Simulated assay, not measured.
Amino acid sequence: MSEMPALPELVGLVLLDGIAEPRDPVRQIAAAERIAGELSTLGESLVGFFVEMARAEGCSWTDIGAPRGLSRQGAQQRYAPLMAQLTIDDLIRTGVLDRFDDGALGCLRHAQGRAQRLGHDAVDSGDLLLAVLDDPAGLAGDVIRALGADPAEVRAALGQGADDDGPAAADGLARPAIGPDVRRAIDGAVTEAHGHGVAVGHLFLGLLRAPGSRAGQALTAYGITRQAALAQVLGLAGRTTGDQA
């Protein structure tokens, strides 16, 4: 195992933080607290990463919690907030998104880029819905129109402005984490795929599994529910289903 930063190294970071200004011992305390917070957050993200990896490999919350004396619910409550600190790239590395096709991954990256450009700490469901609506295949827009709504009005309900259509990347800005509503949409999309590859349509349905989220509220305000959208998605895909869950 590589060595962890020693105290003298961390002290040096604090001293360097204000090297261009007269020494201020009170300000140095604030700098030390900031660095300590960053280390704590990094450690939590490390744990979250390996919990995500275990989940991707089929471990249940019961499997994860039992060695730690935690119930299934206790393990989920303890570790879910740590998992929410991960980015799209982190989820790719853990294997969580292995079944996502290029279109679905592109939507997730597009949503991340939008949140990044806007300086947000996390990608929320509104960012993801806008990315799904921007998908070149246009499935979400077709579904919304088929249900008697206008995709432009849904965009407006999410507060998308004319300056929101910039590039997907933002140099010099930290990549935002995956917000809890987006994480639920990802899990919902996997469920919707029933063991098959996850496509953009599954992400759209995954968003509708959380009607209380920002995206869910924007859609349900126009009468777009998961059941109604599911029928349209399957119709557009040219197949029938017995799934009415």
Rank of each mutant, 00 (worst) to 15 (best):
V132P: 00
A122V: 06
A146S: 14
Q232N: 03
G138S: 04
A229K: 03
S213V: 05
G126H: 03
A215L: 13
H196V: 05
L147A: 02
R117V: 09
R117P: 00
A115Y: 05
L139P: 04
V96G: 00
A162C: 06
A137G: 13
L230Y: 06
A111K: 03
V132T: 07
A131N: 08
A162S: 10
L219A: 11
L234Y: 12
Q217S: 12
L147M: 07
D124K: 01
R145E: 14
A169T: 13
A177L: 04
G138V: 01
V143E: 07
D164Y: 11
A131V: 05
R184L: 10
G159D: 14
P136D: 07
V233L: 06
D121C: 02
A185F: 01
G106I: 09
G106C: 10
P180I: 10
A170P: 03
R214P: 03
P167H: 10
L230V: 07
A104G: 13
L118I: 01
P180Y: 06
S213H: 05
R175F: 02
A115D: 09
D121K: 05
H196I: 00
D142A: 15
Q112A: 09
A189V: 00
R226Y: 14
Q232E: 15
F204G: 04
G159V: 13
G206F: 08
G113N: 02
V96A: 11
P211E: 08
V233P: 07
A218K: 11
R214M: 08
P180S: 08
D134M: 10
R184T: 06
D124A: 06
R99A: 13
D163R: 09
L207H: 08
Q227C: 01
A149W: 06
A215Q: 11
A115F: 05
A231F: 09
R209V: 00
R114V: 07
L208A: 09
L133M: 11
V143C: 02
L173H: 15
A104F: 08
L234E: 15
D127Q: 12
S213A: 10
P167Y: 05
G201E: 10
G166C: 04
D142Q: 15
I224F: 09
H110C: 04
A229S: 15
L158A: 09
A174H: 03
V132S: 05
G179M: 10
V190P: 02
F204V: 04
A104K: 07
L173A: 15
G238P: 11
G103R: 12
A215G: 09
G141H: 02
D127R: 02
